[in-house]
Design a protein around this nucleic acid. Structure first.
Lengths: 196, 196
DNA sequence: GAAGATATGTAGACCGGACGTCATACCTCC
DNA sequence: GGAGGTATGACGTCCGGTCTACATATCTTC
């Protein structure tokens, strides 16, 4: 099973990164949790911890990006998308025992250990904003306003995940979700009105 | 100078926590940066790293709480407060080389190492939301809406600090600040209208 | 299908750094 | 000068990430 061990490493690492951040995640933990022996890791990831963490972060980022693209697809209602994304993020957070939030956040706040990791994080944030801004532009929002609201959306959910984890309750995500949905409703209404 | 050493420890630790999180901050680094010898630390903080981190986090939280209370004072304009807080947070972040964000965030995302630390984080988030919600209620917002918008505010700024650090630019804070200010303006306008 | 080559998986040794402890030194005030 | 609070840094122990040498599986070629 060529990819199995490797995949196992990536997924285990991704989970541990969520839980304890870059520095808090030790190879010993990864090894124990993934059940693989020590040496295997260096076969699959000659670059050691850094390479593994990069792969794990990419894995997490891809998962989020894909889900975002699904929610904010061209043929989906953007207001429903906001609600859906916030509530799904909250659900995953709560179900994981307040562990699974943003895959990038713990890396960023642990001080970003390599240039490559920095690139991954920067690109992730930019991509997420672009996905949302693109959909908002399609809905008729002016360029600058679309970027601005997309930034708010990404920031607010990112922050809500953090606040929710600290409080150990999902209310922040609920509140942020419905606030943002309400505001987007008003904005799109305005756009519609001005086109009449 | 009895308290000097202690204070030095707290401030140094606070800074390093911002920079690298709980796990990334080693006693060696703290010692080197604060210039004090190893033993001193255990004289002032018999509880070791945990006790020191608690003190440092409290220190950071108090600083933020105080600034928030200043911005959202009863006699200050809440819309200006939103703008002021976002831009000041952005300024500090950029000036510190994209290090100084929320003092609680790195602790939360590193998995919270002790119950006491958890309490500090939870209380901090709750306090910040309460400060803002209180001011919004005073401005005439209904209870639930005030809580909701306060949650959005705290989350959005918290998230914007994170996104800004990842991107190494302050645009997210600028955008979030002006979006939130615009939305609050509309909300307060509504309240005023309904009272006529 | 046997031999050798290449890919994959395993085991444990290494070295540096992590945190915490201690026996001791330094004051300062009576 | 002795007693109490304060400060010190060398040391022990454990755990971190990395490496090298070995074992097994899979593939290639005749």
């Amino acid at each position: 099973m060529r990819t199995d061990t490797r995949k196992q490493f990536v997924e285990t690492t991704s989970q541990l990164l969520h839980e304890r951040g870059y520095e808090g995640t030790s190879l010993k933990d990864i090894l124990a949790k993934s059940g693989a022996p020590r040496g295997s890791l260096y076969y699959h990831f000659p670059g050691g911890k850094d390479e593994l963490v990069c792969a794990a972060t990419r894995h997490g980022v891809d998962y989020v990006s894909e889900f975002l693209r699904e929610c904010f697809a061209a043929d989906a209602d953007p207001i429903a998308a906001v609600r859906a994304y916030a509530s799904e993020a909250g659900r995953e957070l709560a179900e994981s025992g307040y562990i699974l939030g943003c895959p990038v956040a713990p890396i960023v706040l642990d001080g970003i250990q390599s240039p490559e990791l920095g690139d991954i994080c920067r690109e992730a944030m930019a991509t997420w904003q672009d996905i949302i801004a693109g959909r908002l532009r399609l809905a008729g929002l002016e360029d600058e306003r679309a970027m601005s609201f997309a930034a708010l959306l990404v920031s607010a959910i990112e922050g809500a995940l953090l606040v929710a984890r600290a409080l150990r309750e999902v209310t922040p995500l609920d509140r942020v979700g419905s606030e943002l949905a309400a505001q987007l409703t008003a904005m799109l209404q305005e756009v519609e009105d001005s086109h009449e």
